[in-house]
Design a binder for these strands. Structure first.
Lengths: 232, 232
DNA sequence: CACAAACTTGTACCGAGTTCAATTTTGATC
DNA sequence: GATCAAAATTGAACTCGGTACAAGTTTGTG
């Protein structure tokens, strides 16, 4: 009765994919703001009501994780050796998860680059992934939830920085390099920052590509953390 | 002509404060979702149109920085000795800026705690502060914009973690302790994380107070960074 | 006083998201 | 295969945040 027998589940997944595909197609063609949810529903041959049965918001149409993703994350985590240092394992899992689907990575970057307002919903939509790595790190450091949170947030700061510094025309390998070096830098500690002459690894980060937009009035470079760091 | 002569500017500030005060009062009394912008406008004896001349969104009514804040940030930065290590100065500036107005700090925490959806707008509203520290760090490490971004994001990860782990009933000093220890931990590097037995400093962080909600399905613990770290 | 710029206002409008009752589809049971 | 309940879909009406714009009002200046 309450069991999702084959056909029902299959149809649900089909509708989910139809909605996502319609959303991606329309938004790619005309831009996020120029497409209404009613159009997306119509393109997927479904009513607006049904659309909102599947997605919580217009943004989640584009950003919600694919139903298959959690299984992939679990596989990545299971592949890490038990005696590997936590920070190294975290780096590998995060890197692999992010870089797995290149087209999705590119779409997200272009969405967020073209439309500031997308970044916050993107954060919400990726909460499942955050929850996953939170659990994984928690398994490694069970006695200290606050340290777990700090480690996870620091790792995501690295991801965010690499993401903003990345320019797709340089290719995905470049993105992986940015990630790698960010993890190295934070892993080694920020106490002895250069005061004028960057350390070699960081200088290399910079050398790797243009970072002009990092200096601009970009609204989200510095992570969501600052919600709290607001005016005094 | 285009000069904001005394009376005009004074009236603007007055209207701004009336709107903010009305918003805080109504939201405190009845909760964010239960108050409409029209009510806030009416309470400030102003039209909805005028309200949106002053604030970009309902959230910004509560979260936009006070016009006086930037001057205070500048004063904080100017007070740092030139030869102070960057990470230490950053810690002091951020801590002082955040902890300056205790009531605002409490209001934000309660807002965000009661209403997940507030966190992202809070991030947007605090962009001016992020921009400020980005500039300050950039002045210290002028040659390496990407390292600057990494440092700023790491610092904000610390702030975010402390913020989430903080429980106001323990008092603001406790919050400052969380900040302090987070800066120390990240400053020293995350390469040698304990795998079961937390290092002393981090354990102390944990000892300082309950962190139960850190482990829950909290949607934003791990910073906005993950917008990009989404599903593979 | 006169004039222009800045500010306010009301109205009309758009689109996201909710609610709900009515209807259809699906799966299980007899 | 007929029946019945749960699940899914639908349309309609509605709320509310946010925009556009033209008309009116206030303020500073010459």
């Amino acid at each position: 009765m309450t069991q999702a027998s084959g056909l029902r589940a299959a149809k649900k997944l089909e509708t989910w994919r139809a909605l996502r595909a319609a959303a991606i197609e329309l938004v790619n063609a005309r831009g996020f703001a120029a497409v209404s949810v009613e159009e997306i529903a119509a393109a997927a041959r479904v009513s607006k009501s049904t659309l909102f049965n599947y997605f919580d918001s217009k943004e989640s149409l584009l950003l919600d994780p694919d139903p298959e993703d959690p299984a992939r994350w679990r596989a990545l985590a299971a592949a890490r050796p038990a005696d590997e240092p936590t920070w190294d394992g975290l780096r590998e899992i995060v890197t692999a998860a992010i870089c797995h689907d290149e087209s999705k990575l590119l779409m997200r970057k272009s969405l967020i680059d073209q439309c500031q307002v997308m970044l916050e919903p993107a954060m919400a939509a990726s909460e499942p992934f955050r929850g996953f790595i939170r659990e994984w790190v928690g398994g490694r450091i069970p006695a200290d939830p606050l340290l777990v949170a700090l480690v996870v947030n620091a790792a995501l700061a690295v991801v965010h920085t690499a993401y903003r510094g990345w320019h797709p025309e340089d290719g995905v390998p470049h993105f992986r390099t940015l990630l790698r070096r960010g993890f190295d830098t934070v892993g080694q500690g920020l106490l002895n920052l250069p005061a004028g002459s960057p350390d070699p690894a960081a200088a290399a980060l910079n050398r790797a590509g243009p970072v002009a937009n990092l200096a601009g009035p970009v609204s989200s470079l510095a992570g969501p953390v600052s919600s709290l760091a607001g005016p005094s």
